[in-house]
Design a protein around this nucleic acid. Structure first.
Lengths: 135, 135
DNA sequence: GTAATTGCAAATAATTTGCTGGGTG
DNA sequence: CACCCAGCAAATTATTTGCAATTAC
């Protein structure tokens, strides 16, 4: 069975900060806010709890599933599938929904320059491996 | 006027590598490939040229527009708008297209667990600032 | 009580930058 | 032949981790 998780005041505080803001803060910003309530909290603890909360499904982390950038030789917009098992990024053959950008512009008053759509999951190659061998 | 960009054999090589692969490599992988043709190329040069090529619109960089993660207290899927001027991330009020995931699963044979859709551009607050004052 | 979690600081990992000499236009 | 750009290595930035002390359950 998976390890039992405890609710500490540090974890509780971090979750409250995230739940009570509509901005999408960085770890460092959360750290600054948390210090107002818990002056001795450390940045390492903030990072550790953010990872725990993400793994528990309480919060979302917004990145490309990894700490480093990937580059694409095709500069025209297209969509991607990211395999969470092997880390591969695949192109997805699905028509680009450019009309969406107009809709969002009208909704928000912003100027939309481009959009990105990524699907996350397990690619077919990894699915086959999982069924076949344990490793 | 903007600076003139030169075409060096390093830049040329990096672009060829990116154009001739369907994978979405990291800077480090590109560096390894480039060294096969130019053994003395440095990792710093790879990074510099990737940034130049991205700014020229020749390639795409896949990340969230910044080097650090952002966190979202709402774990339910929803879409985001990222302002390229001020860096703010906003929630977008647009219905989540869950049926897309099925479509992609059938197309690719992968298991799709979730998807993300982000719009990039200039937010309304920054648009107003730009029109008003130069800074 | 005891094992998970903290604070601290040092370690990693990814990317950027300063400097000087070399190559492009 | 001027100036941009490469190589090298050191600097930055974001994040993770080892360890001894602390705390939640």
């Amino acid at each position: 069975m998976p390890k039992a998780k405890r609710m500490t005041k540090q974890k509780q505080t971090i979750l409250e900060i995230l739940r009570s803001t509509t901005c999408h803060p960085t770890a460092d910003w959360i750290y600054e806010q948390a210090r107002k309530k818990l002056p001795d909290i450390s940045l390492g603890t903030v990072y550790r709890n953010l990872n725990v909360l993400r793994d528990e499904g309480e919060i979302m982390e917004l990145n490309y599933g990894s700490t480093f950038s990937r580059f694409d030789g095709n500069p025209r917009n297209h969509y991607h599938f990211v395999c969470e098992s092997c880390g591969q990024v695949y192109d997805v053959d699905y028509p680009v929904q450019n009309q969406l950008e107009k809709v969002i512009e009208e909704k928000t008053g912003a100027r939309v320059q481009y959009h990105r759509l990524e699907f996350y999951g397990i690619c077919s190659a990894c699915l086959e491996n999982k069924d076949g061998q344990p490793s």
